[in-house]
């Protein structure tokens, strides 16, 4: 197994795969290449994660509530291992995320980055920017009436 990316890079692509809307990563991957064979190390399973907050936003942690999570791990024919931890109950998406995570560590990394990771990042950025523009349009512009003798 070759490591073509550092931890930060891997954290970044795993996050992008996790945040992709349902079916979107699969569409990108299938348009780019035929899916390689793999064996399950851990078939997709659904559970929860306890989400924590902090009192006052910055203080002592407390348990806020859980969110659903799907995780899986697989191994490509060359032994490369891919993991997925994605929010929601999405076994098909988790499989694709783990597959892409594995492929990003192989010779196919550049191809997956171009066909899957970068488009998903662009779409996520666009969605976020669109919401930010709508929010900006609701920002209050105060008019201050100047009064008095001076």
């Amino acid at each position: 197994m070759k490591d073509h990316g550092g931890t930060e890079d891997r954290r970044s692509w795993m996050g992008i795969l996790a945040r992709a809307p349902e079916g979107r990563a699969a569409a990108c991957l299938d348009a780019a290449m035929a899916r390689p064979g793999f064996t399950w190390l851990r078939a997709p399973e659904i559970g929860t994660v306890m989400v924590r907050g902090r009192a006052g936003g910055t203080g002592a942690p407390f348990n806020l509530g859980e969110t659903t999570l799907t995780r899986c791990a697989l191994k490509l024919a060359d032994g490369t291992v891919g993991h997925a931890y994605i929010q929601g109950r999405r076994k098909a998406d988790a499989e694709v995320a783990a597959l892409c995570d594995a492929l990003m560590q192989t010779e196919d990394a550049a191809r997956i980055r171009r066909a899957v990771i970068e488009p998903l990042r662009t779409e996520a950025d666009a969605a976020r920017a669109s919401r930010a523009r709508k929010a900006a349009a609701t920002k209050v512009d105060f008019f201050t009436m100047v009064r008095g003798e001076d």
Binding site: G47, T48, G53, T58, P61, L64, T68, R128, R131
Partner: peptide, 23 residues
């Protein structure tokens, strides 16, 4: 339904200061 699910872990405390705010 929640009681039927295994818990896989705990998140880091969320950073609400970095929230993408709608409001």
């Amino acid at each position: 339904y929640r009681t039927t699910l295994p818990r896989f872990g705990t998140s880091h405390p969320v950073d609400t200061g970095a929230m993408a705010c709608d409001r």
